[in-house]
């Protein structure tokens, strides 16, 4: 594995929806070419934290950020008032809980990110579509029907298509929000293997409800509870030798 390089830093991040404080001051490193898992019981703020990374909250009224997420190596604060959320989303990709392909062809789905960036060159787009589908482990299944509807694919294939769509623009960080919660066990295993592979090319942050999944796919794990970061560390350590009592209670299934 490559050397440990800091890719992003969350610094004392507070986030509120209206007057409800959802994140109460999170500080967290994200390492390059590593998988960082965010775990914790429902309502702990793990998805909210993930959605800060690509400024998804900006789409809705009453969202307020306080604090910083610094993206390295250029050191910009992606939560800065002068930063355009669109710029951030061009650098940080996301895959959602429920597979959400557009009602377009498979090809158009993957090409979408490039097209909205104004990429016109067809050969370049075709190359990227193939590469992304290969990275997402979907190429052999769909290469003969790139022009058929994406919505006709199975749930697991749709989710891998969404991963390909996010990869097509070569994001610096890939956010995965419970990517397997709507999938069957076989598709889930497929996606988990994929995450292991993708780690070589991209930095990954994943929110998951499944502790087994976090243990299987992640290098680092952050345990959150009620808007606070309780413990962060190497996944081996978190799952075998947690330092905090709350973490231990959660991973041993005593609450959550």
């Amino acid at each position: 594995m490559k050397d440990l390089v800091l890719r992003a830093e969350v610094k004392d991040l507070k986030f509120s929806y209206g007057d409800k404080l959802v994140l109460k001051g999170i500080t967290l490193p994200v390492y390059e070419n590593r998988v960082t898992a965010l775990i914790g019981p429902s309502g702990c703020g793990k998805t909210t934290l993930l959605r800060c990374f690509n400024r998804m909250h900006d789409l809705y009224a009453n969202a307020h950020y306080n604090g910083e997420i610094t993206l390295h190596p250029d050191g910009i604060n992606i939560l800065g008032k002068d930063i355009d959320p669109m710029e951030v989303r061009m650098r940080i990709g996301m895959v959602f809980q429920k597979p959400n392909p557009f009602p377009k062809s498979i090809y158009e789905n993957v090409a979408y990110g490039l097209k909205v960036r104004g990429v016109k060159k067809k050969s370049f787009i075709e190359e990227r579509v193939e590469k992304s589908l290969q990275q997402a482990g979907l190429w052999t299944e769909v290469k003969d029907r790139l022009n058929s509807a994406a919505t006709a694919l199975s749930g697991g294939q749709q989710q891998r298509l969404c991963i390909a769509r996010a990869l097509a623009t070569e994001p610096e960080i890939l956010l995965l929000d419970e990517p397997t919660s709507a999938l069957d066990p076989i598709s889930t295993r497929h996606i988990e293997e994929l995450i292991q592979e993708l780690r070589k090319d991209v930095t990954i942050a994943i929110v998951t409800h499944s502790l087994h999944q976090a243990a299987r796919v992640s290098d680092y794990t952050a345990f959150m509870y009620l808007g606070d970061l309780i413990e962060f560390g190497a996944s081996d350590q978190i799952f075998t030798n947690p330092k905090d009592q709350k973490t231990e209670n959660y991973i041993t299934g005593r609450f959550g």
Partner: peptide, 18 residues
């Protein structure tokens, strides 16, 4: 149109008009 399609579009960097 379900909002998850809009989110998918915004998430890859599309503008409102796109």
């Amino acid at each position: 149109v379900p909002s998850h399609l809009r989110e998918a579009s915004f998430a890859v960097g599309a503008s409102r008009i796109q």
